[in-house]
């Protein structure tokens, strides 16, 4: 089983690489930073991209907005969502 810290780090790398955040390093993302706020400038297209990348990297499907909205708040919420779905 993947450790939570390791999962969070993997998510940060995935976010930076898949969204091409060229001026942001994975270390710049704090666990509880709001992903879709001013700090990173992400928008709805990035949300769809993240849904795609999560399916590609973790095999977990985010099926609708009810699932996606709370899960995509921060790296912490995303990690918790994935843990739950990967280890039901």
């Amino acid at each position: 089983m993947i450790k939570k810290a390791e999962l969070k780090q993997k998510l940060k790398v995935m976010i930076v690489q898949s969204l091409n955040l060229e001026e942001i390093a994975p270390e710049d993302i704090q666990d509880d930073d709001v992903l879709f706020g001013d700090k990173f400038g992400l928008d709805s297209i990035d949300a769809v991209e993240l849904v795609f990348q999560i399916k590609e990297h973790f095999g977990v499907e985010i099926k609708n907005m009810n699932e996606g909205r709370p899960a995509l708040q921060s790296v912490s919420t995303l990690a918790a969502f994935l843990e739950k779905r990967m280890n039901p």
Partner: peptide
């Protein structure tokens, strides 16, 4: 241009 504007 700023790199962040090119990310897509």
């Amino acid at each position: 241009v700023p790199l962040r504007t090119l990310r897509r």
